[in-house]
Design a protein around this nucleic acid. Structure first.
Lengths: 347, 347
DNA sequence: CTGTTAGCGCATTCAG
DNA sequence: CTGAATGCGCTAACAG
């Protein structure tokens, strides 16, 4: 139980120099080659490790980035974290994680804790930006970046849900579909619940009046989607659009059980580009988001400010990737030439 | 940019008391109701927040738990973290995360960083326990718990892979299968690559000599499993056992493409109990592990030691849950009465 | 109950 | 280049 016994003073004594000299050695200060060797040796012998807290108390830098996540056990969050870590780690920064449990209130509380804790910056994968979120971004003296939701008053990094929805809508329109059911989540999630849906409707109906989109609300998980599937099916559309791939997967399962063939009898599409979408049958046509890239961009942004750079986001548009697979039937007489498998979407 | 300007002294001055009184107020020390009110007011007015580092420098406690994970973007890791957070958070502890990228060496490096950083305890979801891991657990003055792998010399928390394998083997034996292909991962992963497989073979062959198990190596992902599927199929077994559900999913996809019916033509099972296993068709029969529970247990263990409790693990056996779904055919003449859907496995 | 007095371990002036 | 001195902000004896 002898954790942090040896201090900079012990090293100094052993090396026969002053504490300041050791400190200089540690921080690239000027020091003669001779003493340098002595100090190095003393450090090795004692196994000295500088005290993190004492150091931070002086330097006012923690090398810690606070991250607030809505939940831990989700594929998207995992990818996001993966991206963040990838750029933060090489720079000597570490992340400290807090979970908001999809609550905007807990989100704020977590930010408070992190700030008090002295993190150098905060990244929040938000479920809803309030006035308080904005206030903090402005008043607190540290860089804050929000992802997942958008608000003009603060710095955000977000998938362009409207564009994603629009793209999918346009695709289905080109495939000759006229009646879709959008299986989506609550509108309290502005990004997924509203933007994505509205975008879809716009893209789907664009330039015609004979298109129709019905809406059925589900949760984010397989099961709640599965449970709504009967109602969705009753609507008699030619395609059902899951607001997330998980929703689509639940619906696919239902159709399978009922002997409804996809895409022969009905088409199904999703959003997200989860890996599993490729192994189910039929493989799911979807708009894929690169959450890992998003994590990397977010971390880079923060790092840039921390280095004294300006807070401007040069390119915070997240690219979309349309992934055409097997779950959509082409209703047009003559098959349109569609660029196959996956085409980068520039919006 | 006025982050941490107000100190305990400012509060003291404003309230007309001494710094110690304020400190006592903050730490549940005795203080008169009168001054208590004054201090509270002063704190509100100034918006005082105690300096994390100064506090920790004194108390020698960080309230930080270091966590080393093999990767971030995996379902199991997500669940694990979810469980850890659930018990740590209410106790005022926070987690700081490092990623080992499946490298035992990086694992050690990460532990080093965390220790130097002054975390109160370390949790490592290890990919392989070396002598150095053992040494640290003994010599470092802080609680260390390893999960994912086992070593008698240190405290570990692990799924009983041998038991899980055995259980699956026994089940398939009872279902009348005599020839299985085990699609597994490299043996460098002792837990999954060896224990799980050996356990399966033992359970499958138990009490008979006409059973046969072939082995084909794959990676952990859908694709590598999918790529090995042809070879696996050629072996002509009645059942293929994926070392993880992901592997099984990749194989299921291959069979679907080839028109091989599951379970009519061949049975497929997995390990893990991932949610998606329930929505694919046929739904995958599997042995489920409760990683979230594992995370909770791990955190509780650490917390217990931190509170001065002894380092004994009262119950660190992780329960197994056998999930019988649709992907296995019963080859016996008369259908055996099997306790349906899912039965808790006491091993 | 409360104020005074000491440091925690380190980085950083400031004189040498 | 180097050592002595100072204090970061806070808690913990210590005497009132």
């Amino acid at each position: 139980m002898e954790q942090q016994k040896v201090t900079i003073k012990d090293v100094a004594d052993l090396a026969g120099v002053s504490k300041s000299t050791v400190s200089r050695y540690l921080n690239n200060g000027y020091i003669s080659a001779e003493k340098q060797a002595k100090v190095r040796k003393a450090i090795e012998q004692t196994g000295f490790q500088s005290n993190f807290f004492a150091k931070r108390l002086k330097t006012r830098e923690s090398k810690l980035i606070g991250i607030v996540l809505p939940r831990m056990d989700s594929v998207t969050v995992g990818k996001l974290l993966s991206g963040i870590t990838r750029v933060l780690e090489p720079e000597g920064y570490q992340s400290i994680l807090l979970v908001s449990q999809l609550s905007s209130k807990k989100e704020l509380e977590s930010m408070q804790k992190l700030q008090q804790q002295g993190v150098d910056a905060i990244l929040v994968d938000s479920v809803g930006l309030t006035a308080e979120h904005v206030r903090r971004a402005q008043e607190w003296g540290l860089p804050i970046l929000y992802t997942g939701q958008k608000n003009a008053a603060v710095h955000c990094l977000k998938i362009d849900d409207a564009a994603a929805g629009h793209r999918m809508g346009a695709y289905l329109r080109q495939m000759g579909h006229k009646h879709a059911v959008f299986a989506g989540v609550t509108e309290s999630d502005e990004a997924v619940g509203i933007e994505r849906k509205e975008g879809f409707i716009a893209g789907f109906c664009e330039g015609r009046t004979d298109a129709k989109v019905d809406f059925v609300e589900t949760g984010f998980d397989f099961l709640s989607a599965y449970n709504q599937a009967a109602e969705i099916h009753k609507l008699g559309s030619t395609v059902v659009v899951g607001a997330t791939d998980n929703i689509s997967l639940g619906i696919l399962r239902y159709f399978h059980e009922r002997g409804v063939r996809v895409p022969e009898d009905i088409s199904v599409v999703g959003f997200g580009g989860y890996d599993v979408g490729a192994v189910v049958y039929p493989a799911l046509t979807t708009v894929a988001f690169d959450y890992e890239l998003m994590g990397m961009k977010a971390a880079s942004y923060l790092l840039n400010i921390l280095r004294g750079g300006e807070a401007e986001m040069t390119n915070l548009d997240m690219p979309l990737l349309f992934v055409e697979r097997e779950s959509v039937q082409n209703l047009m007489k003559k098959t349109l030439p569609i660029n196959s498998t996956s085409l980068p979407a520039m919006m």
